[in-house]
Amino acid sequence: AFTAGLLKPSDVFAAEWSQKVFDAKSLEDVLKALGGDKFAVSPDVIVSGPDIAENGAVVPVSVASKAPNTEYMAILVDKNPSAMSAAFAIPAGTEPAISTRVKMGATSNVHALVKADGKWLVASKEIKVTLGGCGG
């Protein structure tokens, strides 16, 4: 994990920004690029967002982890040209719960990928991107 406070910012992240990670096409390939090999779907990880996106260019997504010693969290969009959107190193004292906004080209699964106690955990949610226009 991270020993926060004494390190330079770039030292906090286990790795520099990696083109390989941000070019990977799937959850499996992202994990491989991060040096992991297998993951488990976990109820300790929560990914939330709207069921239907209001605007595919701005989709609010939150990830949270209840797993002890959560040190890393990432948001991935399955159907985007590259899966990885954003990754976060979580220093001690910071809650493993982050909200951001991502672009989605089409209806897709959105994954939260979490590293806790050295293990990789995943949760997924489908977010629909629709053409819109109808109404009661």
Binding site: P50, D51, I52, E54, N55, P60, G132, G133, G135
Partner: peptide
């Protein structure tokens, strides 16, 4: 903002 034009409420977000 999905069923009706989003540009009419550009600064507001809805959802359940």
């Amino acid at each position: 903002p999905i069923a009706n034009p989003r540009y009419m409420v550009p600064e507001w977000s809805f959802g359940i």
